[in-house]
Structures are given as structure tokens and as C-alpha cells.
Design a protein around this nucleic acid. Structure first.
Lengths: 167, 167
DNA sequence: GCCGATGTCCTACTTTGGTATGGATCTTCC
DNA sequence: GGAAGATCCATACCAAAGTAGGACATCGGC
């Protein structure tokens, strides 16, 4: 029986931020500062005003921040949980079957006979399989037919399936 | 019959970067620069060395960059497509049946007999229903059993179901 | 036109399925 | 301890299912 079920679909995204990424950021920061010092003392600072220097620093560190920001966000992208309705064959049959068997009044042995019948076995094969005699199988099947209110094994199988006694 | 199907699960994430976000960034930048100017001329610069000032600028603009970076990345987070195998009842039975019948070599009339058999009808009932004689039904069923390689009607029904000849 | 597949029908026979009836244990429940 | 139900087995008989082998008609493809 196909019921409606819901399925949780999760997707873990991004990578963990590892210890070396911190080192990387620090190194990048240090490199930038060194670069600034180098620029400061050798070329530009003597001729340019402090505002220009500040501007360069601002641009460079904004760039660094963007880079760090993207890295950071990538490292903590969250798991998105999506619930999607899916039509799927839900296995509640076991419960249904028990209930159906209880209501029908079919006994355990009769049910075993019924199941083998549904597989197309003959009475003799059923007898061999259950280690009982042929008359016993006939007895069980006859009682089974009475309980299911049918006259033939094929009818019994058909009705049993519609009642949910067998899959 | 339940086959395996695949389902495409898509999830569009994040928001589009809009025109005002650029304005926002620019405003924030301007505000920071104004703040620095204010700090520079009124309190700190006279007493502190340029390096300290640079450091403050660096930290502030790094923070700004991080903020911009996260905003930027959030705005362009990509659609993640995940393919998940799902066991679902796929309705391709009509096609499957035709194909199964063709392969099995079961003729049209034999199939009709088979369907009534599966409903638990007796040969006589099948004869009445198809407006043919009992011997004819027997003839059809016998040929059917040969084609399905079975010996009994219950077995035929069981095998026919497993082959997809009947629902 | 012939051949093969299909569908129809028949007789005669064997096998399997199903009913009726009765008896023997065994467990469970009141 | 007895009633009820489940399980097991048996005999006898009838009904249904299935096999074997043949006959005849139709229809479509080669």
C-alpha cells in the first residue's frame, strides 16, 4: 500500500575552518604590513600625504577583509533541511496484516497454508512443506474457505490479498 | 511494481545583491573615513605614531571587508543540486505489461482467461463470461500453462504477476 | 495459395481440489 | 474439570482442473 510519507533531505555544505587557515590569515596580514612598511619607507611616504597612505591601507585591508569574509562564510555555511512530500510505499503492512488476520479469524496454520497456496503450491506440496499429511492440508484449506467465504483456492488467494491477509 | 527512480532536489539559496547594497557599502566606507578624520584631527594623531593609526585603519577596514565579503558571498550562494535515489511506485506498468505479454507469447484470449483466473473464477465461470465453452477455456488455460511453464492455475497466476502480465 | 498463429470446440481420461464426517491430542481460559 | 479452539489425521465421495489428441475456421504474411 502506498501512503504519503515525508523525507528529510539534508545537505552539509562547505568545509571546516582548520587551524592553518588562521595561520594563513595571520601571514597574509603580516605580509601586507611588511609591504606597507616597505612602500612607506622607500618610495611614497615622503611625497604623498598621509590621507593617500591611509586610503591605500583602507583598500588593501578591505580586500583582505573580503577575502577573509568569504573564507569565513564558506567555512560556516549551514545545513539546509528541506522537507519534501514523497509518495512512497510505506511498510505498515505488517500491522495491517495482523489486524486483518485477527478480524478474519484465520488461524496460524491456516494462514501458512494460505501463503503457500498463494505461491501456487499444490496441496501435496503444502503437505510436504509443512510436514503434515494431505488430508490435514485439505482440512485446513476447507476451514479456510469457510472463513473466507469462498469455494476455490484461487478465489481464496484473491480475497485474501484484497483483505490484506497476504502481501 | 515499485521501481527505483531518482529525484532532483534543488534549493535556491540567498538573495540577489540589489542596487542599494552598493550605496550601503559606499555610505559605510564614507562614514568610516569621516570617523577616522574626526579621530585624527581632534584626539589621537598628535600623540600617537603613524603606525598605530595605520593599525586602527587596517583593523577597521578589515572588519568592513569581512562584512562586505559575507554580504557578497551570501548574495551569490549557488543552487545546490542533489540527486537522491528514492524507491517509488513508478507507473510504467502499462508499457511493462505490453512488453511482458509480448515476450511471454501469451495470446489475447489466453490473457483474458488468465485475468479471470487471477480473480478466482472457475473454468465454467470464465466460459460463461467470455461466451465460450468449457472445453475452450480448458484449451486456453492448458496452452497458457505450457507458455508459462507451470502446472496449476494458482501457480500461473503467481508467475504471471511476477512477470508483470497482470497487475 | 499455403503456412502459421489464433480461436473455437469436442471426447476421453487422469489428477487435483474440495466436502462431509468423524476421531485424537493439546492448550487455554473460565 | 470442562468447553472451545487449534492442530493433526483418516476415509469416502463428488466436482473441478488439467492432459491428450484431434477437428475446423479465420486471418495475415510470405
Amino acid at each position: 500500500m502506498a501512503n504519503f510519507a515525508t523525507m528529510e533531505v539534508g545537505r552539509a555544505q562547505g568545509r571546516r575552518s582548520s587551524w592553518w587557515s588562521v595561520v594563513l590569515y595571520g601571514t597574509a596580514l603580516a605580509a601586507l604590513i611588511l609591504l606597507l612598511k616597505y612602500v612607506e619607507y622607500h618610495y611614497l611616504l615622503r611625497d604623498l600625504r598621509v590621507e593617500v597612505y591611509i586610503g591605500v591601507v583602507a583598500v588593501l585591508f578591505t580586500a583582505l577583509g573580503i577575502w577573509m569574509g568569504t573564507k569565513y562564510l564558506e567555512g560556516r555555511r549551514q545545513v539546509e533541511m528541506v522537507t519534501i512530500p514523497v509518495e512512497a510505499p510505506v511498510r505498515v503492512e505488517a500491522v495491517d496484516r495482523e489486524e486483518a488476520v485477527r478480524r478474519s479469524g484465520v488461524s496460524g496454520r491456516e494462514l501458512e497454508v494460505l501463503e503457500l497456496m498463494a505461491e501456487g503450491r499444490s496441496n501435496q506440496e503444502i503437505a510436504d512443506r509443512l510436514f503434515i499429511s494431505l488430508p490435514t492440508v485439505k482440512s485446513h484449506s476447507s476451514n479456510l474457505f469457510t472463513k473466507l467465504d469462498v469455494k476455490r483456492r484461487t478465489e481464496a488467494v484473491h480475497k485474501a490479498k484484497s483483505l490484506g491477509l497476504i502481501p
